[in-house]
Amino acid sequence: MSTVMDTDTAVHGAAGGSVAITGKEKRLLRHAMMPHMLCPGCGHGIVLDAMLSVLSERYEDLDNVAFVAGIGCSSRIIGYIDACTLHTAHGRPLSFATGLKLARPDLTVVVITGDGDGLSIGGNHLIHAARRNVDLTCVLLNNEIYGMTGGQAAPTTVLGAYTSTTPLGNTQHPFDAAELAKAAGATFVARSQSYRPQVFGELFSQALDHVGFSFLEVMSDCTEYFGRTNRFGEGADMLMGQARYEPSIDADLARIPTVEPVTIKQPVRPVLPIGVLHRSSRLTLEETLGIEGGRSSGVADGKLDDAVQRMDG
């Protein structure tokens, strides 16, 4: 942990001038695109900044980091990163990213998705990317709603919550995204919050380091719709509301508390564990395919011939 603190809080700059305590990450922004399109107080912006902070510590430039996103407010954040950025179709970023990664294993590929994008329309791709253990880092910004389309219920919306499509309160049970990814075979699973950029930074760093499919869920706030509709207050209130995760945080970022029961009468956003929730190791898709340096090294020729013979009967 302290390593992250050291880097994140490092005072950098030359002697005898001004040194930036924060703001160093801005060199990785596409300034021509700023200010960004997110609503005031939107948690996604905090995550973008936190992500850039980590990246600015790790990389000089992002020439070899590709960001792939779906459709949604969350997915939009990649447009502000000065890298190779691929804003795909709703729910499909993991498919594009898988192809890109297999064609170009030399690239670091980061997928940004939303709870609607990654769990609803793209849920199938998520579980299969996890199953294959393709070496990607998938960051899912969970604001418990469909922000971009105006605040409809998402597969993460808790029971009882009000959205534009659940005027009487949500009647469908939500997904636990991290558990889903874990069950599907992701080899690194973590959860973080927009409220704690530092923790996010640490987990994002670990996810980037991890070889295999790493899944990082970030609890974020949709101030415009989820906050308003459910009277959770303004951006700052929602952000502070994330302090409810406090009991779930442990120094080693790995303790798992019990989830509080939720009644349908009253939307209670659950307390979900924060931190690294799962870590395991198994062959990556690249390894099973025998891919090296952008090209498949090929299965040993003999083996393939055998296989072909077997199939040809």
Partner: peptide
């Protein structure tokens, strides 16, 4: 969808 998505990514 995944097939063509992966193809476009590649």
């Amino acid at each position: 969808l995944a097939s063509l998505g992966a193809v476009l990514g590649a």
